[in-house]
Each structure stands twice: as C-alpha cells, then as structure tokens.
Design a protein around this nucleic acid. Sequence first.
DNA 1: CTTTCGACTTGAACCGATTCAATCTATCAA
DNA 2: TTGATAGATTGAATCGGTTCAAGTCGAAAG
Lengths: 366, 366
Amino acid sequence: MADGAAETGKVRMARDLVRLSDVAKAAGVSQGTASNVFSRPDLVRPEVRERVHQTARELGYAGPDPRGRLLRAGKSNAIGVATAEPLSYFFEDPFARVLMQGISEACDQRGAGLALVSARNSERLAWNIQSALVDGFVLLCIENGEKLVELTRERQLPFVALALGKPDETISAIGVDDYAGAQMAARHLAQLGHRRFGILAIEFDETHEGPVSGAEIAAATYSTARDRAYGYFEELALYGVDRETIPIYETRSTAESVRRGLEHILSGPQRPTAILAMSDRVAMFALDMLAERGISVPLDISVVGFDGVPEAATASPPLTTVVQPIAEIGRRAVKTILEHDGGVHRESLPLELVFRRSTGAPSARS
Amino acid sequence: MADGAAETGKVRMARDLVRLSDVAKAAGVSQGTASNVFSRPDLVRPEVRERVHQTARELGYAGPDPRGRLLRAGKSNAIGVATAEPLSYFFEDPFARVLMQGISEACDQRGAGLALVSARNSERLAWNIQSALVDGFVLLCIENGEKLVELTRERQLPFVALALGKPDETISAIGVDDYAGAQMAARHLAQLGHRRFGILAIEFDETHEGPVSGAEIAAATYSTARDRAYGYFEELALYGVDRETIPIYETRSTAESVRRGLEHILSGPQRPTAILAMSDRVAMFALDMLAERGISVPLDISVVGFDGVPEAATASPPLTTVVQPIAEIGRRAVKTILEHDGGVHRESLPLELVFRRSTGAPSARS
DNA sequence: CTTTCGACTTGAACCGATTCAATCTATCAA
DNA sequence: TTGATAGATTGAATCGGTTCAAGTCGAAAG
C-alpha cells in the first residue's frame, strides 16, 4: 500500500542517539562508572568524572535516558489523574480546576510529576490507563466511575477514588458527607422560614432526566444524588415538610436540562419559595433562568447550591452553597497515594454552608 | 546465601508483580508468543491465546508493563508542557488554562497523553525536564524562558516555545505579532479621539519595576514588552502623539505593582484619558483600582488590555482588549511537536481587537 | 512421495539505564 | 615487608517487555 512511503522511511536518517554505553566506551571507563558520573558523581574520581563529561559533550550525549532509568528504578515518580471525560475537562470544569490545584500543589511539594489520563471513549480510556507511566492514580469519578475503577484496578497500582457515586468499601476513596451537607442546606432554608421547596437534582442514574419518584431515588445508581436527596428530606421533615409535596427533577447538569427542571418545579400546585440545587452548576443555571424571567432571587425565590466552586461566589446574586473542601480533597488524594502505598484508606471530609445573597427569608410577595 | 532462595524457587515478595515471562513459562509458551497474545492477538492461535489469557488471570498478571514496552518502543506517546512556575499555575492562570484547553484538545484528538512538567526552583525544574517521560515539550515561557529553553534543548527532544520573550530563530516557536497587536490597541484609542496616554507595561527585564526610559525599552530582555511598546509608539506617532509625553511604567503584574504604576501614570503633568495595558491581567488590576477611586471607566479613562483571557469579557466594565488565539496556539503547538518531528517551525498567529465597554471617546470631564 | 506454502512459534537480541559484589590500587600503620 | 583499610572501578545481572529471523508443522499442490 504505502510502499513508496516505506521506502523513503528507510532512507530516513537512523538518528539513534548516543547511549551511556557509547560514552563509557569512548571515555575508556566501564558503563557502571559512566552511570555513576551522572547519578552519583561523588563516587567517581574528579579527574575521571571530568573526562567522562567531556566525552559526553563531544558525543552529544543527552544525559541518562529516563526510560532506561525508569525500567530499572521501577518508580516513575509521577501520579496520574484519570477521568472518563475529554482531557480539556481538567481545565474547563470549575470543580476539576480547584481539585487540580490541590493535587498539583501536593505534587509540587513532594516533587512528584503529574500526568493527565483521560478519554471520552472507553476503549481509549482503557488503553490510556494501561499505558500511563505513573506510580498511582487519582480517579475523578464524575461519570462512569465504576468502569473507571475497574479499569484502574487491573493496572494493580495504588489509586484513590474521588467523588465516587457508588461506595465500594474495598477501595480507597476520599469524599464528603453528602447527607450532612444536604441537611445543612435544608436547615438553612427552613430556618429562614421556607416551607415550600423544589429540588433540582443531579444524576441519580446513567441516562434518566425528569421528575423523580421516591422509589427511583431509593434505586439510584449514584449515591451522591441519593444521599443529598435524603439529607434534604430528613431535615425538612423536622420542620414539618412532607417529602411527597416536594417536586424533584433530575437534570443532566446542562442549561437546557435545568431549564426544563425549573419549569417543572415552578409549575407545580404551589410555587416553591426555595430551590435546593444539588450542584453549583445546576444552581447557577437556575439563577440565570430565574433572572431571565424576572423572578428575583432571593426576594421571590431562594436558591442554595452544593459544591462551592469559586464561581458561586461571583454569581449574581452570589450563591449560598454547601462548600466542599475541594482543594483539600485533592491534596489528601495525593498524600494517600504517595504514603498509604496501596492500602485501603477511606476518608470523609467536612462540609460547610456558606451564606451569600441567593437566600433570604420568603417575602410577602411569594 | 541467596542460593537458598533460588532453591525454594525464588520466593516472590508481595511487592514485585507477575511478569510476562512468568505467564509465558506457566502457560508453556515462549515469551514472544505471550507478548503477541497481548499486543498482536491475531498472530496467535485462538486456543493458545485463550490458554495464555487464562494463565495470566490465574497468576494475577496486570498486563504488559508500560515501562518495558516504553524502553523497547521508544515513544511514550505523550507530550509534556513545561513552565518555570509551580504546577498549580496550569489551573490558576487564565491564559494558561485557555492554552491548556487547546493543547489538551489536540492531544485528545491524536490520542496523545499529557504530562505537566513544572517547578518553581530551577534545580528541580531541570530534573523534572530531564526525567519527563514524553516525546516532546511545549514550553510555556512566561518567566525565565531562556533557562527553560536551554534545559529542554539538552534533552534533545522536539519542543516548541510559546510566548517566548526573546526570539531565537533556531528554535521552533509559535507566537503572535505583538507589534501589530499593540498598533491595533493604540489605533482604537486614537480613533476614539484620545491623545493623552499612559502605558502599564509588563516585564521588560528580569527584575525591574518602575518608570521606563526609551533607552531601557530598546535594551529590553523580553521582546514581547518591547514590541508592544513600539507598536503603541509607532501608531500613536501617526496621530501626532509624541512618545516622550507618554508615561510608561513597568509592572510586575501584581496588584501592588499595578497600583504603583497607576499612581505614577495618573500623577503626571496632564492626566491621560486612556491607558494602554500590556496584559489583561494588568488591565484588570487597573480597572479594580480605578473603580476603587471612583474614576469611571470609560467615562474618565479608557482602558485597553492585551491577551484576551476569558475573564476580560466579564470584567466590569468588560475589557476592550487585543485577543490572542490562545487555544489555537496550543493546538498548533501540539501539532508542531507531533508532526514536524524536530524540524524548526516558526509561526505567528493573527491578533484581533475586541471592542467592549472599557473604552470610549474621551468625555468633556477629562 | 516430494515440494511448497502458510500459519504459528521459538529463541535470542535488543531497548538504556542502575546496582552491587568483587576486584584493584594506593596509602598508612605495624 | 606485610596487612589492613578505604576508595575507585569493573563486569555482569537485572528491570519487563517487543521484535524478527529462523524453525516447525500440517496441508495442499505437483
């Protein structure tokens, strides 16, 4: 087929580089000594050391090739962060960005490298995980987390799962207490005087969107959404709010999806005075749409988010939300991989409610 | 002593894992065949293939170790992005983030991995570059670009420099026409009617901050700042503005530094009606400070930035600026490394002025 | 009954370093 | 002069795969 190309390919300069053994030979020392010149200079007599360096320079030796070292040493001194999203996710998504700040900080501190491992299609993701040159993985289980865990487990390297929807006690994981966090959000609104609520949920299951029943919540694939829902319900029950009266709509975290969710919630028998959004992303979409319709937040409706991404602080109005210690989660993840060396380590970090301008007491208007 | 261990059949510690050769032996095939089972399955008789897989499963083989493959294959199929900043820079800095989006997009598309290589102290940076397992580097020459280029050159891998202050014709680089961009900014303001200007510059040299003379500009280490300055000057000259009358202050791109720069510029003999900022970062600091002092933008003073980071669009007021095709630069950089395989490739991408609310005609007030 | 051919397999040679036990060489004390 | 000691150097054994020329085997062709 491409024989012509193959031919010219052969002609191509065989630019094989200078190896350590070449340098050693040329300098008249053993390869062992040559190796020492570069990695443990103090073991070599200055005179010899200089001669080898000189030879290396003359030959254009690029220094010890990390590939060789790697094979021998075993550790690549880098950790991989993996997710089932396109690579650009790491730089676009607010949550990921803050998380990566924590991760990169910890890596920097420990002198570890950082590799981004990612792909949207699972075949390539599998390959990327198989072939990543790292000592361990941080798994960002946003979507398709189980698959990700499974793929990584095969690699037999230490890993820690983050934001894992489905808890599996046998793997290391770092997360937050979604249930308690949801309670905080609900309590906050209830204490402000709200009694009519709507919930904009994040994914309970792989593909569903739309109003959700109690049975569906119980059968949720992702425990994150389930726990948050139960947190809301349990807390609101304390204030006499019947969960059956709360419209809850499962969104796909897109603007359009949230729009539909908002419509559903606002068109119920009695309009809620407060919206519980299961993520800041969803909450902020809701904020946009409410503004579009001239519904004032928090005068007409209060909105509380979840996650605490930086954008929440500068939304208009600034979003009251349950903040996760995102960067800290990242730092701990790195620490877990680098220190707990493979052992199972599970950890749940505390959440905190940050009161901003998107929530207030229900007004007479509503 | 070790013979005893050999006798007992080499007790394998939990630490070291099963190798391909172990699987081959156990399955009763040659290592070559075992290798083919995993990397070229079609070459192996289905029956044998299955037997080997079975054996692998029983032994708990994790699959071919990428380290071995790497050494043999040569290519790691990943590119490194290097900079002389802490690692978190990639996720914090707006310019870097957009750039990384372009880079990661291109990597995704070509199935290449992405490694972040970085460190604040140059000793560690050197080591990190020496030991990065990548096929090429994208150099983000924000700070200390020359050192970065030098370190990378030693590695003898293809690389391309981005935002390199000091042009060196012998290396691959992708950049923008700073001179033309500056002209656009200046022309925009001049055409709005401005005749009194102040310039908030970015770094001309390694360590200096403060008012800058013409001679200092001519002797600048970084051509980016120099070219932008000259672009401003040349264009303004066409409108009869004498460069000697323009106060120019070299900032360190920090809030404090910009504050001092602004004070210097505003305290001149005649207050400018327009500020030319050499970066959006600097421009946005200036915006903040002008707001603080109750100076209206653009009523009292117009401000135009440079770079076109996303934040500029949402600043208050939204910043008029010269936008670089940042993501495109990233994409091209990856392409350059992966395709031009080492050859020198230089490219200059076009800039574009985006007119927003931070500029307007000088009002009677000023 | 040979030959030929194609489909698998094998075995050994790499890939580029690090490591460590063994050896060699001065140096110094007895 | 003889050891002992410390320091420098060597050589060979890894590390864990991939690759490819050469060999094996069975079936189809002559």
